[in-house]
Simulated assay, not measured.
Amino acid sequence: MPFANFKFPEGIIDAARKEEIIHRTTAMFVEYFGEGVRPYTMVLVEEVTDGGWGRADETLTLEKMGISSTSLK
């Protein structure tokens, strides 16, 4: 079963963008593996509380990255 898990800081993507991510990811798996995988494809779009994620041993926030949550919508 193809599976994709996307994680975004909470509040930066709306329902329409989540739906687009699900559709486009499913289409990519179908293109790669064939139509038979469509019913078994799982795409999980998760929102992570700001500051609940990090990289290279550093907790990241939108503020630290200079990103406004309203500018990403």
Rank of each mutant, 00 (worst) to 15 (best):
E20M: 11
E46W: 11
W53A: 10
E20F: 14
L44M: 12
D14F: 06
A27Q: 03
T61P: 01
E10Y: 05
G51C: 03
V45A: 06
M65F: 09
G51W: 02
G11W: 03
A56G: 15
R55I: 13
E47V: 06
P9G: 04
E19T: 10
E20Q: 10
G34D: 11
I67S: 03
L44I: 14
A4K: 11
M42D: 10
N5A: 12
F33N: 10
V30L: 01
M1P: 11
R55W: 12
W53G: 01
L44D: 06
E46S: 15
F29S: 14
E20P: 11
S69V: 15
G54V: 06
I67Q: 01
I67P: 02
F6W: 10
Y40L: 13
G52C: 09
E19P: 02
T59P: 01
K73R: 08
I12A: 07
V43R: 07
T26K: 09
T25F: 13
M42S: 07
T49G: 05
T70K: 11
E20T: 06
Y32A: 07
I13N: 05
R38G: 13
R17P: 07
I12R: 07
L44N: 11
F33T: 00
L72M: 08
S71G: 05
S68L: 08
G51L: 11
L44W: 10
T70A: 12
A16H: 10
F33Y: 03
G34Y: 02
R24G: 07
T61G: 02
P2N: 02
